[in-house]
Design a protein around this nucleic acid. Structure first.
Lengths: 162, 162
DNA sequence: TTTGTAATGTTGTAGCTACAATTATTGACA
DNA sequence: TGTCAATAATTGTAGCTACAACATTACAAA
């Protein structure tokens, strides 16, 4: 079933506009699948994202700004997110000795164990992804990266200058 | 700049997994551009979505369940969303005479005017979309539709199955 | 008519997000 | 040294979401 049937809209202005809606719609769909899956582990997608980021850096701790930079959804409030994770014992947070403005955050053993457990469950969205081929995934990645490439925002094109 | 640089992650398990992150990331990126644009008009992306849905149905009113079904983000609370729009004078909401369980919702003149005004602004994300070709947009749509095909049972309610 | 069940919305509430204001610390430099 | 700007994180708060419980209405069966 295509996007038109799913949101019951039968005409888009053009393929690009349809693509925008499709990305938003598919993103929301994927997010919800993921959130539903992670709920079993009492963790949100944002928290999961942060934990994986910290695992990637382990054993080197990270500061909040670095974590924010790597997050999928940049707008999440990192301070409070990390606070939740600390409360669950999944991360450590200590004031950095060299620079007391920053805090060093690192994943705990308990956090590592949780991630392993989640990995082992073979999340349903991994299965979902199997529906597209490797070649399709590559092409999808290429197009999405192109879409986000830096806009030539306010620059006047050579043609228009005259 | 590709996804790896943007979220500073240099290895993914495979292309499909990267694609999932890419969709979530690009969706969030696009949402934020859109939200920033719409803020000038004192309206959220969700509210804008509902208004366009109602314009599509005009002059035929719609009930809440129909609107929900067509929304990009199904999880928004439609009752309160419509309440906000009514408060701004952008929609009408009256109890349906035939079936008093349902409410008939329709876009007002003021709502139509607002949408026209927004259309006229040529949203920045329309420019964004120009970065991919028509052929790329078509391919993107095809792959995203394929990805969502065969719904994951656990997240789809009985009602939605059809 | 009464009863049960499905359809349709609304509401309560905990928790989360957006974003601007604020605090604390550091480093540059007159 | 004292002042200023930059960096890093926290907090206040209004508004929004998730989701389950609830209320109302419709309709069919006994």
């Amino acid at each position: 079933m295509g996007l038109e049937q799913e949101i019951k809209q039968d005409k888009f202005q053009n393929d690009q506009q349809k693509a925008a809606i499709n990305i938003l719609y598919t993103g929301s769909w994927l997010y919800n699948i993921n959130a539903g899956f992670l709920k079993k582990f009492d963790i949100t997608p944002e928290q999961f994202n942060v934990l994986r980021i910290l695992r990637g850096s382990f054993p080197k701790p990270m500061m909040l700004a670095e974590i924010s930079e790597r997050m999928i959804d940049k707008s999440s409030n990192c301070t409070r997110l990390v606070e939740k994770l600390k409360h669950k014992g999944l991360v450590n947070r200590v004031t950095c000795a060299d620079n007391r403005r920053q805090v060093d955050i690192s994943i705990t053993d308990k956090g590592q164990v949780l991630l392993k457990k989640i990995d082992a469950y073979q999340p349903s969205w991994i299965k979902t992804l199997g529906k597209i081929t490797k070649a399709e995934a590559k092409e999808l990645n290429r197009i999405l990266d192109k879409l986000r490439s830096y806009p030539i925002a306010t620059r006047i094109s050579v043609k228009d200058r005259s």
